[in-house]
Design a protein around this nucleic acid. Sequence first.
DNA 1: GTCTATAATTCGATAGAC
DNA 2: GTCTATCGAATTATAGAC
Lengths: 190, 190
Amino acid sequence: MTEQRRSTPKSIRTREAIEAAAKELFSINGFERTTVREIGARAGIDPSMIIRYFGSKDALFARVATPDLELPDLSATDSHAIGETLVRHFLAQWEGEKSGKGMTVLLRSATSNEDAAERLLDIFRTQVFPAIARAGPPDTAPLRAGLVGSQLLGLALARYVLRLPPVVAMSPDQIVRSVGETIQRYATGA
Amino acid sequence: MTEQRRSTPKSIRTREAIEAAAKELFSINGFERTTVREIGARAGIDPSMIIRYFGSKDALFARVATPDLELPDLSATDSHAIGETLVRHFLAQWEGEKSGKGMTVLLRSATSNEDAAERLLDIFRTQVFPAIARAGPPDTAPLRAGLVGSQLLGLALARYVLRLPPVVAMSPDQIVRSVGETIQRYATGA
DNA sequence: GTCTATAATTCGATAGAC
DNA sequence: GTCTATCGAATTATAGAC
């Protein structure tokens, strides 16, 4: 009992276990089909702890479904390589252990959960739109960003959520080439 | 007592009222967040009737979420107009009163419902894939169809489900031009 | 900090009267 | 064919012992 001094306090470790389990289950089954009991079981703690730590299931979801795309500053890259750069970065984020699950959580729930949908629109507004705006004429910025968004959303939906076989089978390089050319055209307004 | 609609028995009219209400609510809230009670209230009948008529909530969903894209035979169209033709038909189907709601029902539920996802993959296999296969070299057919699918899915997700403002604001002609060029490249494998 | 026990709802589905 | 009444199971969330 005297040894309360530890590298990571128990409360923090429990909190992280809950977040990891929630991220996992939300990304597989979406918000509605994931129960607090399941999260507790996977985290190895009592379900009541989840409410104690996060207040509600909704609050836990909000905590876990706030990813950052971390799109690169495109003004620094070659103007003719914007498309491929953007797609490469996008793929890396989705396949990365850190933000990938958070994105899947969000996309899987956004189609039937108001909060998740609003959160996804926010990512579009604050991350995709600014990155695209500078790549072409200002007056067509919303249009160009919208087209880029639709293609990137479709790619993520097909590859990571619905797992459309031919899209899953493609290599990252293949996707960067094929889809990159599309994004390049959308982003620059050719 | 005035006798109306002798031509359609009450049972059929009730059945149709249930299907219409279900289509409406499933397309707004998805499968999980729509309750049998809500459907009954909107249809103006008792919730128990829904189980009596369709057996279960799942069976009702299956009945309502089986749309037909009715994609055109692309072998009859100019080879350089495949993209625009496909996008125009796709938009018409989504915005049509008949099949549009069925598609929205499916897409809105496919991200968190196993049955809906499988049904969506079926549409891809039986309707999108065959239409694309003949537009380019046979060995790249799955790849080309996958890319087409990802762009069309993303377009539908952005415009009809998430309602991304700039994508909603685009006119059908604008979409046919911009996205049509992408589909053309994907479908033919340029 | 953690768990047991349970409150308070809400769900899909059923039985049976009329 | 339709509705009333309700069942049994599942859910989120809370109260309180240890």
